[in-house]
Design a protein around this nucleic acid. Structure first.
Lengths: 338, 338
DNA sequence: CTGAAAGCGCTTACAG
DNA sequence: CTGAAAGCGCTTACAG
């Protein structure tokens, strides 16, 4: 690489380094004549200001970190895209951390903020990626930080969430309205607040309808397709099989449908299946998948906006944004078999 | 944030800044007693070395940039995960650029290397993200760079590819072996070398089998699901419908199958469908999707390894790695209807 | 409008 | 084994 420094450009233009700097960042402070000469020299040399020099001086990196548990997940990928679009418009670059729920990795990305490499952080895991005490409270002041999707148990943190409990209630009520009473749940991994909330909603909706919650009908998966396959296999072995299965992710629902097909069950005539997320493939399944749609683009956009506001030092009036979900009814759910 | 500088740590430990720096990066140069005191001070203050200070001095950023055309694509997401794993092991962080085939964005990420923010770049688009002349040749020396998947027309660049032409031949030969002769192709967007190569293979395999290539059977998509839907609609309108459709991506194949279902075609009894990639959902479709598997993890891993070698200044013997693909036969392809 | 100077935080060759 | 000093490349308050 041609690593041209500001000095060389200054020499070539016959001005001082200070003037080159001004010409590039505040051209209105420089005379037209000088500006022209400087820009010519910049273009001649292919000069790009060294970010480290600038950042060291200004104490701003122009970067934000995004901590995601699983980037291969369609849901997260959609969110990241929205984040990056928003960040780019604001002149920020995105450092992506695919942390796979490994705490050491989360801390690594947290350190990037602590070490000045990034000015703020978006956290999609339910843990603060900074040193905490035994009560999970941060030891030091936190940098600009927004927490989305998987809620960190700390009220001082800014958040962008959907109402997972209400989403699950909507899902179960949809199944109830079709006459189902033996409704199973395939939940996500333990320790994910999203799953805890959805489980609450699931139980609440059943109880509300006068149906006793049966733990046999609650299977734990990991939000991934394979775990949906396994969960459905378990459910099929039950003496009183469920007539409907509410999976807490579309991926698990897709896995579950695969198992049903393998054992020649008809969907939804024999067993109804629904998911959560509305990933791109939900409407392309056979049968198409009934699900709760998450507003991915909005989640990414609002999260980034909130972070930008914090980084600018604006006081954010609303510490918590709750975005709407939507019940999307397709072919995979139908009336309870008589 | 507690922005502790090395000076404060030095003061607290009663040593010089130089000694703190040594204690952290080369502890063997420091006496045990001093080391203990320094580490205590570091831990007390929560000190994280400012990366910009260090990078400015060492002229190394510890970052690599990845330029991807579409991060929401399952294929790319799998590759990124492998890249990040490999980078992290080597002590590098990944700056992800989701450029959506917008050249200005690609340049933006290229600039991050030019400005010293990253030490190398992985390019998954068919363009050099640096200034080029009218022949697409780089004007300046290139930094450490590896090009993968979508080939840049430049022989001096290091590359990790699969043999797209051979992959397409394998796909078509599979369909030929089932007796199909009216075999359609749904290709990716123009200007993607992967599509050009696969198209070559498609034509070659047909010609080899004595079948005339019919342009009516070649539809252009964009590798996405929606374009598969549309492409299949076009094919169904043809007077002599194809009996098999080779889609250049699984996403397009999934879209195509959706269209076939909508119009009550049976797969594969009426029309066979095959894809390319073997994304996670391919084996979960109904019917399961026959496809050409790309070694995603390997692509990511080898690309990163090659880049690491370049950044270390090692001379890389093999400028080009070609990774193996694999024909995965599932249910979506079957004998030609009689 | 422009330049000289200081300083951001770090590392490392040099001296002791 | 340790410290003082220089310098990486930039920006900006200060002076003119």
């Amino acid at each position: 690489m041609a690593k041209t420094s500001i000095k060389e450009v200054a020499k070539q233009a016959g001005v001082s380094a200070a003037t080159v700097s001004r010409a590039l960042s505040s051209p209105e402070l420089v005379s037209d004549k000088t500006l022209t000469r400087v820009l010519a020299a910049v273009s001649d040399t292919g000069y790009k200001p060294n970010r480290f020099g600038a950042s060291l001086r200004t104490q701003k990196s122009g970067n934000v970190v995004v901590v995601m548990p699983d980037i291969t997940n369609q849901v997260n990928a959609g969110i990241i895209r929205a984040i990056e679009n928003e960040a780019m418009q604001a002149g920020y670059s995105v450092l992506l951390g695919d942390t796979q729920n490994i705490q050491a990795r989360e801390s690594h990305y947290g350190d990037m903020v602590s070490s000045g490499q990034a000015d703020g952080i978006l956290v999609f895991t339910p843990r603060i990626p900074f040193p905490t005490d035994e009560d999970q409270q941060p030891i030091n002041d936190l940098p600009p930080l927004v927490n989305s999707c998987e809620e960190i148990p700390n009220d001082t943190i800014h958040k962008v969430m959907i109402d997972n409990r209400a989403g699950a209630i909507a899902a179960v009520e949809h199944l109830l309205s079709l006459g189902h009473t033996r409704i199973a749940a395939v939940k996500g991994p333990a320790l994910t607040p999203s799953t805890e909330s959805r489980l609450l909603g699931y139980k609440e909706a059943l109880t509300q309808a006068g149906i006793k919650v049966d733990e046999k009908y609650i299977i734990t998966g990991d939000y991934g397709t394979d775990s949906g396959v396994i969960a459905m296999e378990k459910l099929l072995r039950l003496r009183d099989r469920p007539t409907a299965v509410f999976c807490f992710s579309d991926d698990m629902a897709i896995g579950a449908m695969n198992t049903l097909r393998e054992y020649d069950f008809r969907i939804p005539e024999d067993i109804s299946v629904m998911g959560f997320d509305d990933i791109r493939y939900a409407k392309l399944m056979s049968p198409t998948l009934t699900t709760i749609k998450q507003p991915l683009t909005e989640i990414g956009k609002e999260s980034m906006k909130m972070l930008l506001a914090q980084m600018k030092g604006e006081s954010v009036a609303n510490k918590r944004i709750t975005l709407p979900f939507e019940l999307v009814v397709r072919q995979s759910t139908g009336p309870v078999p008589s």
